[in-house]
Design a protein around this nucleic acid. Sequence first.
DNA 1: CCAAATTGTTTTAAGCCTAAAATGTTTCCC
DNA 2: GGGAAACATTTTAGGCTTAAAACAATTTGG
Lengths: 172, 172
Amino acid sequence: MPAVSDCTEMLDSETKAVETPEDHAEELRLWLRLLTCTTLVEGEVRGRLRQRFDVTLPRFDLMAQLDKAPDGMTLSDVSKRMMVSNGNVTGLVERLVESGHLDRRTSETDRRVQVIRLTKLGRAEFRRMAAEHETWIADLFADLTPKDVRELMRLLAKTKASAQKSAARRRP
Amino acid sequence: MPAVSDCTEMLDSETKAVETPEDHAEELRLWLRLLTCTTLVEGEVRGRLRQRFDVTLPRFDLMAQLDKAPDGMTLSDVSKRMMVSNGNVTGLVERLVESGHLDRRTSETDRRVQVIRLTKLGRAEFRRMAAEHETWIADLFADLTPKDVRELMRLLAKTKASAQKSAARRRP
DNA sequence: CCAAATTGTTTTAAGCCTAAAATGTTTCCC
DNA sequence: GGGAAACATTTTAGGCTTAAAACAATTTGG
């Protein structure tokens, strides 16, 4: 092979991104598989929550956030944690206050802020649901070895960081 | 160590599931991380589709299914592939037919069945969007090495199989 | 053949969700 | 102090989503 080949290859690889569209089929497949897994588990959890406890998944998720915050959270905290829009939280909270699971009060130091907490009823019901929920998840992931789980945790952490970085690049 | 210890351990592990609640915190964390990754990527893709092409993610997903099926698909095919409810597809298709992206006709051999296809416009627009979409995904997963991608594919395949098995156990 | 079960789709009712605009409140800083 | 910017929440308009019931057409098993 002639000595110039390295140079040619360099030029090729430098111009490749411009001249020939890169192949990202693998990443695309990965994304679709990730989505499939999530949809599968989510659908299963949604159905079981409805059948066993007549509760929706978003309500359960919101209560899960509040269970971890005994002193309550503001609506924007919840919104950020759940990665949903503000307006979405407003409606969700409204319904859960209505049903007696949540307590909502205006902060005394900042009248813009609404602080929400689980009521005694809300906490009791959530704990009951969460215990069973945990066994569903364990069952859904039952075929993964502890090593699989560790490895997935690691790779998904990397995935999350990558996606966050990419999102930040676009919206600095 | 006495010879009976094996026996004791066996009994312990057999009764453990009944007497002491198992710890499934790791699986739970894995599920939450999986959900976070998906939500992150999905939100990013949704936003870019809206800004760049003024199209919603579900519409894009539906067109993606049809692009892979030049001879068209029935509504239930689409519903199964997308893992959404029948009624959902009905509405989605309605809007895409209205906007001229889809063609819908009743099957000649089975009058229950509706076959939908991309129109020329629909296919052209989808191809345009898909090309850019692929670069977004590549960018979102950019920090993963090819090995990471392979390993994730493998572990998510296992995860998918596990979840499907669990779902089938409950709904045989 | 024909009733019953099955299959494919639509309808219904309710809730979820988003982006963007509007409203009210606080902070910043000149 | 006072106006502008920033922040927290709600409202709005539109679309997405589901489960369940209803409807229509086909297949199946006596």
